[in-house]
Design a protein around this nucleic acid. Structure first.
Length: 652
RNA sequence: CGGGGAGUGGCUCAGCCUGGUAGAGCACCUGGUUCGGGACCAGGGGGUCGGAGGUUCAAAUCCUCUCUCCCCGACCA
């Protein structure tokens, strides 16, 4: 078909293809030839000598975490700006493999869309997130002065499609997804691809008629996510998570343990309980209460210089667990329906040996931001200096003291008695203070972080929690009605009644999968990726290109493996063997075939990178994880290895 | 945004304190010798010393402003 306007015929039009065009299979390669002369396919085989794989002997000084260093050294990425990276050949190849897996699995439950990355302001106004997203959103104006932003997530856009198109319960459920570039103006990008300002995300959205439907869509995602991460070779855990600014009731994060991670996970080795620290709870041992002194009522005690918990505990000869500490914040509440945002005071009270979890606190009071109070604000809201703040005498939400102050008491203080707390007076504390009897609060909530060694919160479990760092690679949310309601998506149910669809939202960070995989499998020399996401499955290293016999053997093996459907990289560079080995160890390819001296006797070496980790190899000493294989067995043996890996994954 | 650090050839860094007109190793190019764990010899190319302004006979070096990047914190689907 040719469009009416194109007289000469557009590119790809049949009539314009030269008469000499033909497809032929060359002996050594399957090249498509143009005019019988020019090869259209430059890479009939991936030859290292022709590729751009800029490996670095040394990592740039500003790379800190392992994956960052190795991604740079292996020539996967190059930095363009803070949190902005170029993905080069190997990096892009690996990402493509990850994307292919994600797509293949997602296609089982959802339909792929492709939404714009640049978005008009309107959609964001409706949900209230134009302002709600704050500085994390990249904003720009078009030539007419209209506001636009770069997409950081697509709930609004997907919901607008649903609102415009979905009319009947018969059209539900729907699961729509996309694999798309996201932009977030992170305050502090870091760790190479760990936290960046532009990244690829698979995001999906479900629309269901009711809660049962949502549960189903959520379960489907849970299942598919586990398959995706398993196929990508990640050792992951699913943990209970905080929903953050997304809103919603239930959410679960998929985490990979690594010290490079930014999240803290509490888990129980006994029962498998696992939760993000922003969400985790624990069962506390009961604390032996102190005997009341005097008449048992709150008593003012002079405590000069005891501003720190440790000082107070020492002064009273008590455990910090019997002290009540105060952390005072100013909290920002977003104005609803065009009302201005407003800062107000929040006093959080908790056990002296406990730490405030600001995410939990934010959730408890429904605020968007927190900052600690300045000295003047402490005086204004609590009439006390830092170090001597206490809950007694505060009248929440009443004039004059504590006006507008929200008093939040941690759940761990419930049922306690005869404690010590600040007296809101310099160098003074109160003892014999009992929550409920001696002071009240605006709300009582779990606002503390659990500590390692505390008891698992699950009934009947005697395990002790351990806390570890992890990277988040995926997150699934039960969103509820937040967007469908605010944006007015409605369908008619079977009774002809208008109902609001209930939504879920589900994300996977594509680069994070690569990063996490590298973090979990690296040594001093480089890293190794699972075959499923490695840019190449195997590198055929010809140890001496000057030797025609070796060269030909290498070519033959590479051709054979490629014909069998494997991704093969032939290292045909005119480099010394040592250089090639070092590079091969560095760039993440899981298998290597050394074509060297033994080729004369019909043998090559098959090296499994992960088994050679950390082992020293010398001229006379084969690398660990290396096995001699006859030429005719190379393919079979390699396939056996690959099958083993898959079995291993499936069983984990 | 607060605190700390760094910008000198592609990479790692020295030179800066005490101003005199830019260096090393690696990488790159040419020739030769090597050729299984990042070879050696000889020759060669490449740097507005992040940018702007100032002081000075003279600035990589001293002063002021500024930009960028990294780390810690704040922040964070």
């Amino acid at each position: 078909m040719r469009s009416p306007g194109s007289k000469s015929g557009s590119w790809g039009s049949r009539a314009r293809i030269p008469r000499t065009f033909r497809i032929e299979t060359a002996l050594s390669s399957s090249c498509v030839r143009l005019s019988g002369r020019e090869s259209l396919r430059v890479f009939s085989m991936h030859r290292w000598s022709k590729l751009f794989i800029p490996t670095l002997r040394e990592a740039p000084a500003d790379a800190e975490v392992a994956s960052h260093k190795f991604l740079l050294r292996a020539g996967y990425i190059r930095q363009l700006g803070a949190g902005i990276y170029n993905y080069l050949f190997l990096g892009q190849r690996s990402l493509n493999k990850i994307i292919a897996i994600v797509r293949e699995e997602m296609d089982k439950i959802g339909q792929e869309f492709y939404l714009p990355g640049i978005l008009p302001r309107d959609a964001w106004e409706e949900s209230g997130r134009w302002t709600g997203m704050g500085d994390n959103m990249f904003r720009l104006k078009d030539r007419k002065g209209a506001d636009l932003c770069l997409g950081m997530t697509h709930e609004e856009i997907m919901t607008s499609i649903a609102r415009n198109e979905l009319r009947s319960y018969k059209q539900l459920p729907q699961i729509w997804y996309q694999i798309q570039t996201k932009f977030r103006d992170e305050p502090r990008p870091k760790g190479g691809l760990l936290r960046v300002r532009q990244f690829i995300m698979k995001d999906s959205y479900s629309f269901d008629l009711d809660k049962t439907g949502l549960d189903r869509s959520y379960e489907l995602h849970d299942e598919v996510y586990r398959r995706i991460f398993t196929r990508c070779g990640l050792k992951f855990v699913a943990v209970e998570a905080h929903s953050g600014s997304m809103g919603g009731s239930h959410s679960q994060e998929f985490m990979v343990y690594t010290d490079a991670g930014e999240d803290l996970i509490a888990s129980c080795p006994e029962c498998g309980y696992a939760a993000n620290l922003e969400k985790a709870t624990s069962r506390l041992e009961t604390v032996a209460e102190m005997e009341p002194t005097g008449d048992g009522k709150p008593e003012l005690v002079q405590t000069p210089g005891c501003a720190a918990i440790a000082d107070v505990a020492a002064f009273f000869r008590i455990s910090p667990a019997s002290d009540i500490k105060c952390v005072a914040y100013m909290a920002l509440k977003r104005g609803a329906g065009g009302a201005p945002d407003r800062w107000h005071g929040v006093a959080a009270f908790l056990r002296g040996d406990h730490q405030v979890n600001e995410t939990k606190l934010l959730g408890a009071i429904g605020a968007a931001e927190l900052r600690t109070m300045q000295a003047e604000e402490l005086t204004q809201y609590l009439n006390g200096p830092a170090g001597y703040l206490g809950p007694v005498g505060l009248s929440p939400d009443a004039e004059p003291l504590g006006a507008g102050l929200t008093v939040v008491v941690d759940k761990a203080l419930a049922g306690r008695g005869n404690m010590v707390c600040g007296a809101n007076k310099l160098d003074h504390h109160l003892r014999n203070v009992t929550p409920g009897r001696d002071f009240g609060w605006t709300l009582s909530a779990d606002i503390r972080s659990v500590n390692e060694g505390e008891s698992c919160p699950r009934d009947g479990c005697k395990g002790k929690l351990v806390v570890g760092k992890a990277v988040e690679v995926g997150h699934i949310f039960k969103l509820g009605y937040k967007y469908s309601e605010s944006m007015g998506a409605r369908v008619l149910d079977e009774n002809g009644k208008e109902v609001t669809p209930i939504m879920g939202s589900y994300g996977i960070g594509i680069e994070r999968i690569l990063t996490a995989a590298i973090e979990q499998s690296n040594d001093a020399n480089g890293f190794w990726l699972p075959p499923s996401i490695a840019p190449f499955t195997v590198v055929v290293t010809v140890t001496n290109m000057a030797d025609a016999a070796l060269r030909e053997t290498g070519e033959a093996i590479a051709a054979e493996l490629e014909a069998a459907g494997l991704d093969v990289l032939l290292d045909d560079r005119n480099e010394r063997a040592g250089v090639k080995f070092k590079d091969a160890d560095l760039v993440g390819i899981p298998y290597r075939i050394n074509v060297g001296k033994k080729a004369a006797t019909g043998q090559v070496e098959l090296v499994t990178r992960k088994l050679s980790s950390g082992a020293k190899a010398g001229p006379e000493m084969p690398a660990a994880g290396s096995e001699d294989v006859t030429l005719s067995d190379v393919l079979i043996r390699l396939k056996e290895h690959l099958e083993e890996e898959e079995l291993l994954l499936a069983s984990s």
